[in-house]
Nucleic acid binder design. Sequence first.
RNA 1: GCGCCCGUAGCUCAGUUGGAUAGAGCACCUGCCUUCUAAGCUGGUGGUCGGGGGUUCGAAUCCCUCCGGGCGCGCCA
Length: 609
Amino acid sequence: MSRNVPRNPRLRAWGGHPLSEKMPVPFNFATAIATALNEVATKLELDSTIFAPEVRMADPRHGDFQANGVLPYAKRTKQNPRALAEKVVAALPDDLTALCDVQIAGPGFLNFTLKEPALDAWLTAYADETALRDGAKSAQPEADQVYVVDYSAPNTAKQMHVGHLRSAVIGEAIARLLDFSGAKVIRDNHIGDWGTGFGKLIWAYKRQLDADALASDPLEEFERLYKVGNKAADEDETVLQDARQELVKLQSGDPENIAIWQRINDVSLDAFQKIYDQLGINFDHTLGESFYNDKVEQVYTELTETGLAEESQGALVVFHAEHPRFKAQPFMIRKSDGAANYASTDLATLLYRREHFDADAAIYVIDSRQGDHCQQLFLTAAKWFEKTNRKLPRLEHTSFGTVLGENNKPLKTRSGENIKLRELLHEATERAAALVAEKSAQLPAEEQAEIARVVGVGSVQYADLCQNRSTDYVFSWDKMISLEGNTAAYLLYAVARIRSIFRKLEQSPDSSAAFEAATALETPTEIALARKLTKFPEALASAVGPLRPHVLCLFLFELAGEFSGFYAADKVAVDDPAVQARRLRLCARTLLILETGLHLLGLRTLTRM
RNA sequence: GCGCCCGUAGCUCAGUUGGAUAGAGCACCUGCCUUCUAAGCUGGUGGUCGGGGGUUCGAAUCCCUCCGGGCGCGCCA
């Protein structure tokens, strides 16, 4: 019999960890409380269609968790809320009341405060990343489902710019969060490698190529050529005709044009990879629009045969008669010239993901401005899959707002150009390097450079993640790099200070032997820190559920704040071995959760800064 | 015109299945380094939650309406 299988059925429901003989402890206390309250409701024969525990994290002044469900239930069933609350509390199972004190507050709220032994048991049970991962997986109903995460997706022949930042950063964090929670994640970079712009670009490539520029900075040269071709086509009708001919030749497989196109894509992907390397992004697949060239015909055929698509003004479009807006606003799946567009390839892509990857879910990390497109895509796919007896994956448009400059307009350079991601990351690193030189001049130059890279890039990533993704956000170098408040540097600094303690004491955060002498948590700052640590599962679940990384950011910031308070109040390197051991254990767990959390967000961490 | 998002402290933002005295950070004022990294910590000032109405034990949160801002809506992706 495996000792990893909880014998207590409630513990199993909690995703509990049976390491402590004297106290079984759930991974997620909030879930445990909700489970217990539902059992009580059954025991008391409450109407389960009305009763919901409504457990949430509480203001620390009121305890660790509060359950608000008793009051509305009592109101709806015309009972005295307080009397019902007392009945519920009296019926709570012993294993829950062993974990926390329960109080009735106000008109019938239940306040749960974790007892010190429960905190202690949690810190014992969840001592490494594997334990956290197992706990997260057990708490996640979608564990083992296949999630395709579609993010980044830049266009080839152009450099990545600030407009590509959020999809890449948020998408990566979401992929990591889902993976940590037990999903089978497939990271798919759906690059735009087949646009109509290639005709103009190839036209210019054949006539105005600067070989030296191509050798030194090919992507810059492709961008210049595109502008040349675009301008020429605008000014001269015959150029436009020629450019169209180049596109037709490309699409019909002309070897010369295919070779140029291939060259452009190779160069582009190399440049993208340099950015991805800095951001810690690795895709499982890069299946761009060109990959679906031979797969759109099936889309046309099936959508026509099922009666979903119709001809309109020479194009093939889908209307949704039942929809107030999409009954008139078409979803165009084939242009009047017969060419595919991104609606066609997106439909083909979804089918491929369903059939080839067996996807249970597809997450589209795309700009909120494409909301209509996604809605039409999802609506069309739902009908198409239903009519063809296919299982529709869970489809989610994980949208995000625009990065604004301090003038509240989309962020651009002074001359009105998009800011290149390469330059943005470079400047972030430079600014961080200046700070490192000022604050940590004693460190070797090489280490200073590494710190600058981690802090600089991490600051960009964190600034993007820490705000609710649905809103636009104002980009500010000063706020981002000032390293105060809810920033990457503040969190990285907390990590570095913990590492420093272990170095000074010549101990390892991974060695449980160092913590054996630990006694019960005592000081208010010790207890506050431990209480915060046990909220990680809640924060994680709240971030994964609605795919909102900023919830995790906020938790990590608050955790780092609790740690800083503890650090200032309670010295770890004290003579008393019991006190030192228990504080060292708090440091080890804080380090574990800060690092795990930051890595989930896609940031790297440091040992010194 | 239709639709989506948004409006919370001087600034940038949390608070989204309705819950306790609406919270942070920055800025400003105030203390704290011969003690583990002061890129830190402690205390304080600061609010008609855009306006008005409604729903109820309870509304920043839900509904209605108005004001203000951003974005999208047939051949770019």
